[in-house]
Design a protein around this nucleic acid. Structure first.
Lengths: 126, 126
DNA sequence: CAGCATCCTACGCGATACTG
DNA sequence: CAGTATCGCGTAGGATGCTG
């Protein structure tokens, strides 16, 4: 049995029987969707990701990447070079997320389009 | 028109071209997945949802439901009776979320199962 | 280059008490 | 019954400065 981190334990209490929440917890971070998107096109260095996402501070990026790593979504490989090089890539689990991301994206597009037209169906029959 | 806080503006600016984040924002709340699950089986009263989810306080439940309503996910219908009755149901958009929820659930199950086996693929070729 | 340490604030959300 | 009002804490994540 794998020991849970503090972070995981707290979420776990509520995630209980709910794999949905478990999945959400994993992709929940502010920049994680963007990171996953970036890594879909292949391995990337830290600095590559950073310049692709200029609004993320290095600190935030580090944290998010480390959480993704802890969750088994990305692999982190350090090269003992000077200057240092670190590459991130999607793990198998990370790649398996593409279904989820696609569903989210698809719904997001639909939803944004139709958000203004949500009246007139206040109480449908069950 | 509702004025956005600095945070929301920033968030919005970033969500911009990202329907994925838009979708995530909608289902992100602590209890929203559970609520959506409850409403999948049809219209429910506030108290029904509450007893189905004993860990949620009335306050939290109200907030989450109101956010879902604001996002066009659920419909809220008030009956002018005594005692008062309020029923919630999924809107069309809410029902359209089932694909997303299914993908999340499926991945969640897979992920939980295999989380311990994520070694040995640290640096795959791009 | 790719971080870590520290400080700080906004937001989510729980607890509690009151109301039409 | 189905909320609202108020308080208070915990956490995510931004800003800044330092390092192997």
């Amino acid at each position: 049995m794998k020991p849970l981190s503090d972070y995981e334990q707290k979420h776990d209490r509520l995630a209980d029987d709910c794999p949905v929440r478990a999945a959400l917890d994993v992709i929940r971070g502010r920049w994680k969707p963007s990171i996953l998107f970036e890594l879909k096109s292949g391995r990337k260095r830290f600095s590559d990701i950073q310049s692709a996402l200029p609004e993320v501070t290095a600190q935030a990026l580090t944290v998010q990447l480390r959480q993704l790593e802890a969750d088994g979504i990305v692999n982190r490989k350090v090269f003992a070079e000077v200057p240092q090089r670190v590459e991130y890539s999607l793990s198998k689990h990370g790649r398996a997320l593409s279904n989820v991301m696609d569903a989210l994206e698809k719904w997001g597009i639909e939803h944004q389009k139709k958000q203004a037209v949500t009246e007139g169906e206040a109480a449908e029959p069950v």
